[in-house]
Every structure is written in structure tokens, then in C-alpha cells.
Simulated scan of single mutants.
Amino acid sequence: MVVHCASKNNDFGNHTLTTDQEFEFSFCLEIFSTLFFCHIWWQNKDSAFDAYNAKWLDNPCIGPNCTYEARPDGIYLSGKFRESWSTH
């Protein structure tokens, strides 16, 4: 699996992960303007999504932590289904 996360000002680059590996990043929160997006490629699937958006009205993160998990049927945030895979 390859993960690439970035914002307007920060690009964390590509990270190749194997089973049970994690990729973690942190940032300084700017109220109403922080936006991070990620793109994940896994086998013949991929998904691009907002990983954190300060403008979310119903923040799905647990406290200051957003924990995503890639599963065969999609991307989950804090245990709840969030994004579907696209297939090629």
C-alpha cells in the first residue's frame, strides 16, 4: 500500500506500508483553514479523500486524532466507514 498525504503547505510524500504498519503525521491547527488530504493506492484500488478539514461541522475524529484504516471494502475513520475504493 502506498499513502501520500499533504496540505497546501506540507507534503509528507509517498510512504509504502506493509500489513500492520502505520503512517503518522501531526500539524499545527489553524482554526477554519487546516485541510489535509490523502491518496491511498492498494493493489488495483485507490482512494483520495480529505483526511482532516477544520471546516467539518461534525468532526469524525476522536479528540485531536484522526485514525484511518484501510480494509478490503474501503477506508474507515475511527472505526466508521468513510470512503470507497476506486478500481482500475
Rank of each mutant, 00 (worst) to 15 (best):
M1E: 12
V2G: 13
V3C: 03
A6F: 11
A6P: 01
N10W: 02
F12E: 09
F12T: 01
G13C: 04
N14L: 06
H15W: 00
L17G: 11
T18P: 00
T19Y: 14
E22R: 07
E24R: 13
E24G: 00
F25T: 00
S26M: 06
L29W: 05
L29R: 13
E30I: 08
S33Y: 02
S33P: 01
L35N: 11
L35C: 04
F36H: 15
C38S: 05
C38A: 10
W41P: 01
W42L: 12
K45L: 11
D46E: 13
A48E: 10
A48S: 14
D50S: 12
A51T: 10
N53T: 07
L57C: 03
N59H: 04
N59S: 09
P60N: 11
I62K: 14
G63Q: 08
G63R: 04
N65C: 11
C66P: 08
T67I: 14
A70K: 00
A70L: 04
R71W: 06
R71N: 03
D73L: 06
I75R: 05
Y76W: 04
S78I: 08
G79W: 04
G79C: 03
K80A: 15
R82L: 07
E83W: 00
S84M: 04
W85H: 06
S86P: 00
T87K: 10
H88D: 08
